[in-house]
Nucleic acid binder design. Structure first.
Length: 225
DNA sequence: AACAACCTCAACCGCATCAGA
DNA sequence: GTCTGATGCGGTTGAGGTTGT
């Protein structure tokens, strides 16, 4: 009899019929009448005790091999859940509390440049997580932006009306084109300055919080300021 | 005070990509 | 080259809190 976990279960679960269910395991019947056992993980909010166990194990083993960490910590959680909890909450140097004006400004600029690439944006805001920025964007900034647009009467740009995945694909290998004056916006395309966004936003060697110099320089070049 | 509507954010889900066997 | 499991990412959901009526 096969044993599956939440992580390997996927959408097939929807086509299966429950047979028995305990706190830890659920037996299901597949459409082909095969009986499989699904391991049931804890869901929902993390308890203080779970946080403590997870932090302890990560201190010993490091923040990788999440499935192993989940098992070793004795948490009835999937690895994915542990990873998320660590990255968004338990990780050291997480900044909590309100997003400052400076940070908000930076998010707006970076979003203009990168679109919904939250992890890249988060990489430029020390202590902030992609989840936090995404939430902040969805609850605050997108509304602000919509209001501004309504006031200025502007409809969606060509890029904005493009399906998200297509835009993403385009942005990964984006070529930023500018005219010779360095002052125009996207309209200028007579000369090319090509670069790889992922390389450009490789922050691994960066230092210092909220170093805005680089972004200001770039946005000025791109006419986004 | 009670209820509804709205807001926020932690957590989950599904998919893509990567790495190792 | 292919398969499989691990990891990372963005979108979505829902519980709990807040505000308005």
């Amino acid at each position: 009899m096969a044993t599956m976990t939440d992580e390997s279960f996927g959408k097939d679960a929807k086509t299966m019929t429950p047979i028995t269910s305990t706190k830890m395991e659920v037996q299901l019947m597949t459409p082909k009448n095969e009986v499989i056992t699904k391991k049931e993980f804890n869901r929902g909010a993390w308890t203080v005790e779970e946080d403590r166990k997870l932090a302890e194990i990560i201190e010993i083993h490091g923040a990788k091999k999440w499935k192993t960490i989940a098992t070793k910590a004795g948490l009835n959680r999937c690895g994915k859940s542990c990873r998320l909890r660590w990255l968004n909450y338990l990780r050291p140097n997480i900044k909590r509390g309100n997003i400052s004006d400076q940070e908000e400004d930076l998010i707006l600029r970076l979003h203009k440049l990168l679109g919904n690439r939250w992890s890249l944006i988060a990489g430029r805001l020390p202590g902030r997580t992609d989840n936090e920025i995404k939430n902040y964007w969805n609850s605050h900034l997108s509304k602000k932006l919509n209001q501004k647009k309504k006031q200025s009467g502007g409809g969606p740009t060509r890029e904005e009306s493009m399906p998200e995945r297509k835009r993403m694909a385009q942005k990964v290998n984006v070529e930023v084109r500018e005219d010779n004056s360095n002052t125009s916006t996207s309209s200028g395309d007579s000369s090319n300055i090509s670069f790889n966004v992922d390389e450009f936003f490789n922050f691994t060697n960066d230092q210092g919080p909220l170093d805005l110099g680089w972004v200001s320089e770039f946005l000025e070049l791109d006419g986004l300021l």
